[in-house]
Design a protein around this nucleic acid. Structure first.
Lengths: 225, 225
DNA sequence: GTTTAAAACAAACGATTGTTTAATATGGAG
DNA sequence: CTCCATATTAAACAATCGTTTGTTTTAAAC
């Protein structure tokens, strides 16, 4: 192996782990499986990353870093709210579309019992998106209304991530060699669209519409004091 | 132990597994941990359930069974759409509130590589909710519009489940003995409402509003052919 | 050529895994 | 009391786990 190829070992481990974690979850994937998938010796994992959990941390850090760069400042106070929603939705869809596996690993609620992972996620959550806060203000939403904030907290991210998770899972199921009766039926009945740029342009438009009008409808809704 | 207490061993195993799976995910929980938590001998797990995966299957079956009973027929064609949304949302919130752990385990996308689990979920997914399909029709939504159906597929379930997952995770984090700087900050800044009946009455009302008006806004939206 | 540092390998450690097997305990019926 | 079925236990199996350790290989610098 040339020097270039050697430098790739760390990346291959990272990519293998990412793919496996997305498919099976962190705990179900062992270091030997990662090493085998990456075509490296098992010791390379500790050599390049330290402990297994450090791979997960690297993935989470990459994901959140990308995420915040994608959505940090979308539009400004002069952007009309509806346009701003559209921009935010587009950015989010783009982000999750390009980083489906990454997002699946990093945004997964579990595990919630590994202290350093919980810490890491909470640290990242401190950097809230300025764009969404401004948007709420532009729309006249009372951000001190605890109930409303609970309803809308993370709604867009959740909906879009779930869409891509479902797509990812279905794609994986289609690749399985042995397909049971139910899976065959499921894949037969489902109309699977072509997930091209055109599809996602429309998807984003419709979702932005739904979200914007939904938000608007609750602006004047009076919660009890 | 009396006979009654003996009969409880199976239930204790089930409850222990449910709680642990919800917190850590299926793969991160071992049979010995479940047995210890349930205060039974390790062999009891195979005695009462067979293989470990059969516990997960039992949980998934219970959850989906409850879920479909909760949401199968809510209102009918004569129920005004907005009222029907309200009823559906209330039922869903009620279901997820009372079965948070159960739902977290069963609705979790992962693992997607255990054939029998994938099978089971797909089998359950065949029984779609009649209420939501009727609702779309009532509102004038074109259910053959693939893009729209992709946007709204499972939106309510997703939003509500995510709310309760976040609540669950936060509760767990609060119970951890050692709290890092970030966690302390996080818990200090967050205004945690009292999640009582009143809160969820308002939550449901606001979410129903958001969803109904969102749906209505996309009814007339023309997707490209 | 030698030296050095980095990369890669193989073996091993202590621990844990899901599951099986054989033995024992328990409780109900007769 | 005995008998039988069920519940429970402890030991064990083959396998895997994350990580460490020592050795070898590789590549770059001199």
């Amino acid at each position: 192996m040339t020097k270039k190829e050697k430098k790739d070992a760390k990346q291959r481990i990272y990519d293998a782990a990412l793919s496996l974690f997305a498919r099976k979850g962190y705990s179900a994937v062992g270091c030997r499986e990662i090493a085998k998938t990456a075509n490296v010796n098992i010791s390379m994992i500790c050599y390049y990353f330290g402990k297994k959990v450090d791979i997960l941390k690297a993935i989470i850090n990459e994901c959140y870093d990308k995420y915040y760069h994608a959505v940090l400042n979308i539009g400004d106070e002069n952007t009309p709210p509806q346009e701003r929603v559209r921009l935010i939705v587009r950015k989010l869809v783009e982000f999750f579309r390009e980083n489906t596996g990454l997002a699946m690993v990093a945004f997964n609620t579990l595990p919630i019992d590994i202290p350093e992972i919980v810490d890491l996620k909470i640290k990242w959550m401190s950097g809230k998106s300025k764009a969404t806060i401004e948007l709420y203000t532009q729309l006249g939403l009372d951000t001190n209304d605890v109930v409303k904030m609970n309803v809308i907290r993370g709604v867009l991210t959740t909906i879009i991530l779930e869409h891509f998770q479902f797509r990812y899972a279905r794609k994986h199921i289609m690749q399985v060699t042995h397909q049971s009766k139910y899976i065959r039926e499921f894949l037969t009945q489902e109309i699977i669209p072509e997930y091209n740029d055109d599809f996602y342009e429309q998807y984003s438009e419709i979702l932005a519409e739904l979200y914007f009008h939904g938000l608007n409808s609750i602006v004047a809704h009076n919660s009890k004091p």
